[in-house]
């Protein structure tokens, strides 16, 4: 499944941005403006993230390190895309690559307590499109969306493409 960004990623909050409870979760997403026409499903995703400093410190740009996963049980397929702002072209060598500075220590920490003394966070705001070849999806919701960094997973949001609405799960 080929997922595309339809708008540049905006790193600023607005009225629809979710809030992160930083002691319990690292990433929270909210979805609005679900549309489905001409075999393309579209939605607008707003996300807020707040990682403990030692996790965000493993990346030069933690806002570009997250991965968006969309999977569709109607088509039994899924796709993923890195949240990288490809609308902006940077001169080669202008930014440090690769984005990861260090690997997480082993064994990988679980998704336990996120309580720490320093946090690093921000917001994301982007329009996303993915193909859906079903005329009328049988499942409601039929597609699911979440964000991920290492083993920190956001809340999962379902997309009902018949009623064209997002369902909090």
């Amino acid at each position: 499944m080929d997922i595309k960004f339809e708008t540049p990623i905006v790193y600023l909050p607005d009225a629809g941005s979710p809030e992160v409870d930083s002691k319990r979760e690292a990433i929270r997403i909210a979805v609005s403006d679900v549309a489905f026409e001409a075999r393309t499903a579209r939605f607008h995703m707003r996300a807020a993230y707040q990682f403990p400093g030692e996790i965000a410190g493993r990346y030069h740009r933690p806002e570009e390190a997250m991965v968006l996963v969309v999977h569709d049980i109607e088509q039994a397929d899924g796709g993923s895309i890195r949240l990288e702002n490809t609308f902006v072209w940077y001169r080669p060598g202008a930014r440090p690559e690769p984005n990861q500075i260090a690997e997480p220590p082993l064994p990988m920490p679980g998704r336990g307590s996120l309580v720490t003394t320093s946090y690093r966070g921000g917001w994301l705001d982007v329009g996303v499109a993915f193909p859906c070849y079903a005329q009328v999806p049988r499942y409601r919701p039929s597609a699911y969306v979440y964000l991920l960094l290492e083993n920190y997973v956001s809340n999962v949001i379902g997309l009902d493409l018949v009623d064209k609405k997002a369902i909090e799960l």
Partner: peptide
């Protein structure tokens, strides 16, 4: 059968966060 048919797996290559997703079945 959708219990197995609906599973998708995602592999992320960590240095560049390059993801790849595909259906299990």
């Amino acid at each position: 059968g959708e219990v197995l048919r609906g599973v998708v797996l995602t592999v992320v290559f960590p240095p560049g966060q390059v993801p790849m997703t595909g259906p299990l079945v």
